[in-house]
C-alpha cells in the first residue's frame, strides 16, 4: 500500500479524508489493541489530519496517542461500571 500524502488527502472530501486516515491507522492500532481498535481509531480520528498523517509516519507518536486514548477510555468505562 502506497503511503498516504497530504496531497492525496486534500483531493478528497472531508469525510472521506477521515475514512482514508482511519483505513491506515486501524491496522496499526489493531496490532496494539485487537479488541478496541475500532473505538480507539474513532477517538484518534478527531485529531487534526496533519497530525494524524504525522502519526502514520512516526509510530512512536501514534503509540503515545493510542496509550492516551486507551487510558481515557478505560477510566470512562470504569466510571460507567461504578
Amino acid at each position: 500500500q502506497e503511503p498516504l500524502t497530504s496531497g492525496m488527502l486534500t483531493a478528497a472530501p472531508p469525510q472521506e479524508q477521515k475514512q482514508m486516515l482511519g483505513e491506515r491507522l486501524f491496522p496499526l492500532i489493531q496490532r496494539m489493541h485487537p479488541d478496541m481498535a475500532g473505538k480507539i481509531t474513532g477517538m484518534l480520528l478527531e485529531i487534526d489530519n496533519s497530525e494524524l498523517l504525522h502519526m502514520l509516519e512516526s509510530h512512536e507518536s501514534l503509540r503515545a496517542k493510542v496509550d492516551e486514548a486507551l487510558a481515557v477510555l478505560q477510566a470512562h468505562q470504569a466510571k460507567e461500571a461504578a
Partner: peptide, 21 residues
C-alpha cells in the same frame, strides 16, 4: 484542533472498509 481525550471518548468507533458489507 487539539486532542481533548475527555471529549473524544464519545467519538463513534471507526469501521474499516474490510469489515463493512
Amino acid at each position: 484542533e487539539v486532542f481533548v481525550p475527555g471529549q473524544n471518548v464519545h467519538a463513534p468507533a471507526f469501521v474499516p472498509s474490510f469489515m463493512k458489507d
